[in-house]
Design a protein around this nucleic acid. Structure first.
Lengths: 123, 123
DNA sequence: ACTATAACTGAACATCTGCTCAGATACTTT
DNA sequence: AAAGTATCTGAGCAGATGTTCAGTTATAGT
């Protein structure tokens, strides 16, 4: 079987490998725990224990998430003695959040009432 | 049990409801089939059958996906006789793709070799 | 009315995912 | 070197997800 499980990409579609990488990035943001972690890390660096106190998951669970995020190079790890601090140095990740908020606002504007979303990203 | 399964949001985190909506948006883009569909729809409108010929999924499967995308208001449906044409009127969705590509390019630049990603979005 | 085509829907199934637990590894302090 | 703290890792389980199949609904043409 040659490429049967692979998404067909005609001239119109995104090339297969690019699509796959993009999906990995979105997948990283598509879980509440990970999304919260990544959002926190766009603000400043946190240790694993710090993060596990800010999200409702054990330190082990957080570590698992961070391992995945490391694998796709979305976060940086820095060791300081006993603990390891994670951060995001890619400004585009913050931009990704911002665009998502823009989209949500667009959706809301075509609705009866629309709250102010953007404040969430105010530094 | 009050809010045990809910992501804690201290002063640092994103508010719970906003986080949830954002996650829904990213979830929509975190599957290869859906991502390809959405990318195609950022270019022009397609019928269900057309889409099912561009992605490796039955028309039924595509319909299921579109139902989910409709539920979170990511796509528009327009009936024309027998068939239904789907599209995206929200420019921010295209921007979301662009930012993801920027991120991927950033990741690649810190690597031995980096391909030219952006061309994929050239009209 | 009947047939044909397009799209939708519910059910069932296999796979994937996120979580915790138990234990391993790494560093620090005494 | 022993104990303490922080992080990682593999296993296992419950719940979510993507797909197809079978059947239904909607419109078009004859």
């Amino acid at each position: 079987m040659p490429t049967s499980h692979i998404v067909r990409d005609g001239p119109q579609g995104l090339p297969e490998d690019l699509l796959e990488e993009m999906v990995e990035t979105f997948k990283a943001l598509s879980d509440p725990t990970r999304a919260q972690i990544i959002f926190l890390l766009t603000k400043r660096e946190y240790s694993v224990n710090e993060l596990s106190e800010l999200v409702p998951v054990s330190a082990s669970g957080v570590s698992h998430h961070l391992a995945k995020l490391r694998a796709i190079r979305l976060v940086n790890a820095r060791r300081d003695g006993n603990q390891i601090f994670y951060s995001i140095d890619d400004a585009h990740v913050g931009a990704l959040f911002r665009e998502a908020l823009f989209h949500l606002d667009h959706v809301r504007q075509n609705l009866p009432d629309h709250p102010a979303y953007f404040e969430a990203l105010a530094e």
